[in-house]
């Protein structure tokens, strides 16, 4: 019995892993994973920023409603959010929505909730005196946020944002449940077709995920060091 590691099956399906059935079909594989992650990341950055600002709003009803919403989303498994979007989005749009939109909407909603907590913590980490100084010079509350608090808070938040992005990349693998042909979905397809190489296939995509996430984590560390240095001059 042959127990060796069959690189050949990886090699033969490399294009499929990387870009799915493109150009004869839609983009898939690693490229689609990256697309889902990047688009969701950008959207949830702004989503998290808005939710986070609402979480520290001086208007009590707005603050409590936002906190309730954020905690509700954080208390639901991501898979549940994806299912919800799968049925909710077509109903909201009044027409069928592409599955990739479903996934982006779900990832954005889910990650925004987590990002909002980072934003909230970031804003609260800035000493009170900064807001007081800004208000004292005649800036309004929103101007003080925009010019004084957020620029400082965002700098502190960069490492947490990168960590959230790493989670996001891993979370895209759940898109396979609604049939979006990202990396994990492609892997199951190749596995179903070739039947006897699950170890090789899933080890390979695990390594791909790891390389992506590890590289990002290192980038975050580097950024952290760089910003720490800039603060200390």
């Amino acid at each position: 019995m042959d127990t060796g590691f069959h690189f050949q099956v990886i090699w033969d399906n490399m294009a499929h892993f990387m870009i799915g059935r493109y150009p004869s079909g839609p983009v898939g594989g690693l490229l689609l994973t990256l697309y889902l992650a990047v688009v969701s990341c950008i959207l949830s950055f702004f989503g998290g920023l808005i939710l986070g600002m609402l979480c520290v709003s001086r208007n009590r009803p707005i603050r409590y409603a936002t906190l309730a919403f954020v905690n509700a989303v954080r208390g639901i498994p991501l898979l549940m959010v994806i299912f919800w979007m799968y049925f909710l989005l077509p109903w909201l749009l009044g027409r069928p929505a592409p599955e990739s939109w479903t996934v982006i909407a779900a990832l954005t909603l889910f990650t925004s909730a987590y990002m909002s907590q980072i934003v909230q913590a970031g804003i609260e980490s800035i000493p009170r005196g900064q807001m007081e100084a800004a208000l004292s010079t005649g800036l309004g509350h929103n101007q003080a946020m925009l010019y004084i608090i957020l620029p400082q808070a965002l700098r502190n938040m960069i490492p947490s944002f990168v960590n959230q992005f790493v989670s996001l990349i891993k979370d895209t693998s759940l898109a396979f449940i609604v049939g979006v042909s990202e990396l994990t979905h492609v892997a199951t397809q190749v596995n179903n077709r070739t039947m006897v190489y699950p170890t090789e296939i899933f080890a390979f995509i695990a390594v791909l995920y790891f390389i992506l996430c590890f590289a990002l984590t290192e980038l975050s560390r580097w950024l952290e060091r760089r910003l720490a240095w800039r603060k200390s001059i």
Partner: peptide
């Protein structure tokens, strides 16, 4: 009204991300 009243704090509370000049010119 606050724009007409200068306030100086015990802990200075300068904006650490802005240069001296920008600290003064912002408002």
């Amino acid at each position: 009204l606050r724009a007409e009243i200068g306030f100086v704090f015990q802990q200075f509370n300068l904006y650490p991300h802005l240069s001296t000049l920008r600290n003064i010119t912002l408002a």
